[in-house]
Design a binder for these strands. Structure first.
Lengths: 165, 165
DNA sequence: GGCATAATGTTATATTATAACGTAACCTAA
DNA sequence: TTAGGTTACGTTATAATATAACATTATGCC
C-alpha cells in the first residue's frame, strides 16, 4: 500500500486524484456505518461534488451542480444546506469561514483543529495536520473550554508566486 | 500610569471601559495622522459604535445604531461597509469571519495575526496576542507566502461555564 | 401494517454584501 | 481662487448567502 499523500500535496502538488476520491468516499461510507448514520443519496451527491475537485465551493455552486442537466424540478437551497450541515457535523467536509465555502476533508472524521492554507490566486486550499497546541493551552489557562477552532491562513502558494513574477 | 489591561481581561474581566474607549479612539486618531489618513466623521462614528461595547456587531447592527434617533434620511449599507473596510484595512477593527461581524481592535494598527476566543454563550470575544509561530513556519516550509491569518476559537468562557453549570 | 423518527421537498423570506453611478468635500498648484 | 484631480460619501438597486416554517416522503421498528 502506497503512502498516504501528505495534506498539502493534495492541494498544491500532484496526486492520484481518482484514487483519492474513491478512498475518501469509502471512508465516508465506513464512518457512517460505524456511527449508524445515513449517507443518503443527497448527502452522497453533495459529498461527490466536493470530492470531485478538492476545491472550495459555495453552497450555491453546489446547488448549481446538482441542478445541472436541466431537470425540470430544480432543487432549492435548504436541501444543499442540510446536506452540508450533516457532512460538516460528521467531519466529512469543512466549512471555510473566510470564504463562505465548503471543501472536502482529507482526514474524514477528524472534526477538530483543521488548519488551512488558502491561496488567494488559484483558490486552492491545503489542509494541514494540526501541530500547534500553544493557543489551546492559552485558552485553557483562561478557563476557556474550546469547542471548535477556525484557522485559515490566506496568501500566495508557491506555484502562484512563480506565475505572479 | 496603570498597566495596560491584558487582552483577555478586556473581554472576560473588569476593566475601566470609559478610559479604554478614550484611549483607543486617541490611538486611532494618532495612527491616522501618522499615516496621513482621514478619520472622517463617518469612520469615527462607526469606530465609536464598536468601541462602545467591545462586542462583535454585524454591519447591519451598526447600521441600525447609526440610524437610531429616527433621522428621516436613513443611511444605506454601503456607507457602513465602506467605513468598516477602512477600519479593518488600518487595523483599527477586526472582522470575525465565523460570525460575519466586526469588533474593535485593542492593539490598534497591528493588522496581522490576531487570535480570538469567542464565547458561544455570552458572545464576548477575547483578542489574544499571537504566540504561536509553528503554523507560519509550516506555511513557509511549503513556500506559502502568508498575507493574513484568521484564528477564531469558539467555546465557552469561564464565566459562562459557571452559569451553564 | 401502524407508528415514530429522520430526511427531503417547497415556499417564502431573512441576512449579509456589493455594483454602479452620482454628488460633495478636500487638496493643491498654477 | 479656482480648475482639476482625488477621496469619501450618498443612493438605488440587486447579488449572494442562509434559514424559518411547514408539507411530504422514506426508513426503521414493533
Amino acid at each position: 500500500m502506497p503512502a498516504k499523500p501528505k495534506s498539502a500535496d493534495i492541494a498544491f502538488r500532484k496526486h492520484d486524484h481518482r484514487r483519492c476520491q474513491r478512498q475518501l468516499m469509502s471512508a465516508a461510507k465506513r464512518l457512517c456505518e460505524v456511527r449508524q448514520l445515513r449517507l443518503t443519496s443527497r448527502r452522497r451527491q453533495v459529498l461527490e461534488i466536493l470530492l470531485a475537485s478538492h476545491r472550495p465551493m459555495g453552497a450555491y455552486d453546489i446547488l448549481a451542480e446538482l441542478n445541472r442537466g436541466g431537470a425540470v424540478d430544480r432543487i432549492a437551497p435548504p436541501i444543499v444546506y442540510r446536506a452540508l450541515e450533516f457532512l460538516v457535523a460528521e467531519g466529512l467536509i469543512h466549512r471555510i469561514e473566510s470564504r463562505n465555502a465548503f471543501i472536502c476533508c482529507i482526514q474524514p472524521g477528524h472534526q477538530n483543529g483543521a488548519q488551512f492554507l488558502i491561496c488567494r490566486d488559484c483558490e486552492r486550499i491545503a489542509e494541514l495536520e494540526n501541530s500547534d497546541r500553544s493557543l489551546l493551552a492559552e485558552a485553557n489557562s483562561l478557563g476557556f473550554e474550546v469547542d471548535h477552532s477556525v484557522v485559515e491562513i490566506t496568501g500566495l502558494c508557491a506555484e502562484c508566486q512563480k506565475h505572479a513574477g
